[in-house]
Each structure stands twice: as structure tokens, then as C-alpha cells.
Design a protein around this nucleic acid. Structure first.
Lengths: 239, 239
DNA sequence: CGTCGATTTGAAATCTATCAACGATGGTGG
DNA sequence: CCACCATCGTTGATAGATTTCAAATCGACG
């Protein structure tokens, strides 16, 4: 099975065989997590680092009124808690959408690995910077003029990110996310998300069938959404 | 003059005299930036790291329709571009609100300093994690039910952050930010921000006079906003 | 006093939430 | 195979929040 983290890092760094071997052995201990299960709970402290290997998870907080605010999607190759040890405990929770496979790595083993593989250290810091850039764009996305463009923008992001780790085929990708989940992601009501998706499908910019999203014309969707992929540090749309 | 970065780091780390001396000498080369000036331009690459010493700046992007989306405030003690070198160029711009004083540090000198002062290295990584936690909360803030609560929440954050670096007195702080700036920050129209602030002032939760914000009863504002300061890794509201 | 930027106000148009109900779908057990 | 259940998706109607446009007021400052 492809190692998505390696694939991600190799998109920007020349990893040696030693680097890759180290990463493979790091991610050898995996666990399968059920759909809609909590992977990491707010305020918890862990000796381990978690790396998504399969499926999609999300970072979220529960607001005082009980609503769930999702502010990040974690896809294969993403690391859940690389920089958490400096804090007393994580300030948010992480749950799965569909079933996920997660690699569990002792933090000290990862630290050793970084110490002996400098390129890997730089690559992982780059990955952390990338997560931060993505987070910035999640703030900016909400400023787009319409719910349609916000949704379109997120689909663009996911197409690039999933493509980077080899999880797209013919501009389509698995979609385990319900409209209610998507509403908590975009900060809209479920009803409005439903109508928004209908409009987007009506224009032909996206198709959603049997838990899979297709984007017939990525260029058109990008133009519609005003999507600029620079923040992803990728050349996906600049070919 | 107080060194706000030292004050921030000391809120959580026991810095040695050597650590502090190193930080002071790092921040000795400062430059004054005019109000509403661009400090760092999108896509630029710099040999230097910039640290805010006085005034408030912001990170922002310009959307396709020309609007400005602000997604971070940088206050004294904040570092503008610590983790940027791994990217080709920064993916956003930074501008000042009022006049700012900024310390300019050669990146390699900072790196050397971190290498020889391990505690400083950990402290700066903590500061970076804190910036990320703040960014997460800026996504979550937009999910609050009303514009009033969103604004109240941001005022709570600023009270804590500015307090942490010694820039509050009697629960008030300088406010160089216009309503138009604030609108670009909250993602609301200027007109609506005006009415939102009027309502907040009407309740007595905040006062704004001559470029200064006062919060007569922080506990009341916190309760109103549903503000939880955990993400700031601070005990401000937990006394 | 005049000017410029910033704040404030009013009214209409648009977007989004809420509430309540209905329909589709897939899985499960009888 | 069918009835049943739970989850998800869809629809209509109404209320509420926010934007937009345009104009008036305020305040600092030369």
C-alpha cells in the first residue's frame, strides 16, 4: 500500500532511501478507527503521535451552544498532533468521518528519527507550515461572497490535497462526509448546504454520486471559486 | 523599555539571564514603520525575521473581488515570519494599523541563538504553536451566533494577549483599528460592524473612547462571548 | 473655516437560519 | 422477501441577520 506521507513529502523534498525506510517503519503500527469515533479528545495528553493513513478525519471544537465547529480536515499523510507537547493539552478534538486507519508513533521515536534524518525534519516542519497555511485559508474562505463559492473553494482545496497523496482518479475522490458534517465545516445550516450543493451540481461544476465527488472541469471550478493554490505550496493548477 | 517577547515567553518558560540577554541583543536593531504601511508583501522572500515591538499589525490576503481578509493581529512580542523559509515565499501580506516598531533579525543569527539556547528554542516553538491555536480560534469565532458575540470574543482574546505582554492597564488597551479594519477582520460589512459596536457599547460590556478600548467587567464580557481562554495557554480568566 | 477620513443613519435587497415535514436509502431482523 | 428502523437528503414557508447603497454627521487638523 502506498505511504501517503512519503508521497506528500516527496512532492517537495528529495528523500533518501534511508529517510523513506525510516518513515515506513515509523508508520508500521496502525490502528483502525470506526466511523464517527473520537480519535483525540480535547485537553488530553498523549505520548504518541497519530498519522492518518486511510480515511478522513476532522479537527473540531464544540461551542457553548452545543454546535460543532470543524476547522480542519485531516487526510492520509496528515499528522494529527506533531507540535502539541509544548502545550498542557490539545485545545480541540479530532474525530473520524468514515472509517480511518491511523499510524501510532511513540513521540520519542519520532524525535530520534528526525534527529538522525535532517531532511525528514525539514520536510515535517514544512508539512506543519502547510497545515498552518491551509488553516489560514479556512479563515479567508468564509469571506467569499456566497456559500456556493465557499463550497467550491473547499472542493478545489481537497482536489489538490488528495491529488498530492495519490487519492484522486480522473478528478474524483471519495466523499465520506454528510451534508450535516459539511455544514459544520462551512459554518452554514444543513438546509442551506443542501441548497448550495444543488446549485453547484446544477451548474455542472461538481458531481456527487455514491459517496464520491467528481469535478469534471477543475479549471472551471477553480475560476468560479477564485481559487489560488499558492497557499498549498503546490503546482497543481499551475501546470 | 520592556521587551514584550521576553515577557510573553516568561509567562510559560523559565528563561535564564543568558536567554534574556540573547533576546535583547537580537531585538536591538529596530525600524519604525508608518501607519497603514505594508511590512511584508505576499510572495516575498526575506533573509530577515521581523518581530513586532510596538503597535499592532495584521496578516491579510486580498480576495479576487478586491476585499481584504484579515486573519491575524500581530501585537508586540509576536514574530511575523518565523517558519516561512521552508516555503518558496510567504502566502500573505502583513500591514500595520497604527505606527509600529519592528525588530529585524538576520535569520541565521536567530537560528544560531536557538541552537545555543535550547530553552529559547522550545519557547519560540511554543509561541508558534500559540499563534496556530489563535488562528484556529479565528475560524471558530465566525461560528458564533451573532456579530456581537464574535466581536466580544475577539475583544476577550485581545485583552488576554495584550495583558500577557503588559500592554493593558485597568482592563483597557490602545485601539488603532478603525471600524473598516475591524470589518475586514470579522468578515462583516462596515455598516454592520458599526451597529454591532453600538449594541455592545449599549450593554456596557465595552467602551471605546479616543482610540482606546475599555472592558469594565471582563468576567461579564467573557460570559457573554462564551470565551474560553484555554487556547491561549494562559490562566488569565482562571484566577 | 474647510477638508479629509471616520463614524453614523435609513431603507431596500439579499442571504441564511429555522422550523416542520416529507422522501430516499440502506441495513437488520423476522 | 418484506417490514421496520435509522440516517441522510430534500422541500416549502417564514423569520431573522447581514449587505448594499446613499447620504448625513462628526472629529481631528492644517
Amino acid at each position: 500500500m502506498a505511504n501517503h506521507l512519503i508521497q506528500k513529502l516527496e512532492s517537495r523534498f528529495a528523500l533518501t532511501d534511508s529517510d523513506k525506510t525510516a518513515l515506513v517503519s515509523l508508520t508500521s503500527n496502525t490502528r483502525t478507527i470506526e466511523p464517527r469515533a473520537t480519535l483525540i479528545l480535547e485537553a488530553s495528553v498523549s505520548e504518541n503521535v497519530h498519522i492518518i493513513q486511510r480515511g478522513i478525519a476532522c479537527r473540531y471544537k464544540i461551542l457553548p451552544d452545543g454546535t460543532r465547529a470543524i476547522f480542519a480536515y485531516l487526510i492520509p499523510g496528515d499528522i494529527c498532533d506533531l507540535n502539541m507537547p509544548l502545550f498542557g493539552g490539545i485545545d480541540h478534538s479530532i474525530s473520524t468521518f468514515g472509517a480511518c486507519e491511523v499510524a501510532i508513533v511513540r513521540r520519542e521515536i519520532l524525535d530520534d528519527c528526525i534527529a538522525t534524518h535532517p531532511t525528514l525534519g525539514r520536510a515535517l516542519r514544512w508539512a506543519a507550515s502547510l497545515d498552518e497555511a491551509i488553516l489560514r485559508e479556512w479563515v479567508v474562505r468564509k469571506r467569499r461572497p456566497s456559500a456556493e463559492k465557499q463550497a467550491a473553494h473547499l472542493f478545489c482545496e481537497l482536489l489538490v490535497r488528495l491529488g498530492l497523496v495519490g487519492l484522486t482518479s480522473r478528478n474524483s475522490f471519495d466523499w465520506p462526509i454528510t451534508q450535516a458534517d459539511f455544514a459544520d465545516t462551512l459554518g452554514l445550516s444543513g438546509v442551506h448546504v443542501n441548497r448550495t450543493l444543488q446549485k453547484l451540481r446544477g451548474t455542472g461544476l461538481i458531481e456527487i454520486r455514491s459517496k464520491r465527488v467528481s469535478i469534471p472541469d477543475p479549471q472551471a471550478l477553480q475560476t468560479y471559486a477564485g481559487f489560488n493554490s499558492n497557499y498549498l505550496n503546490s503546482s497543481y493548477f499551475r501546470a
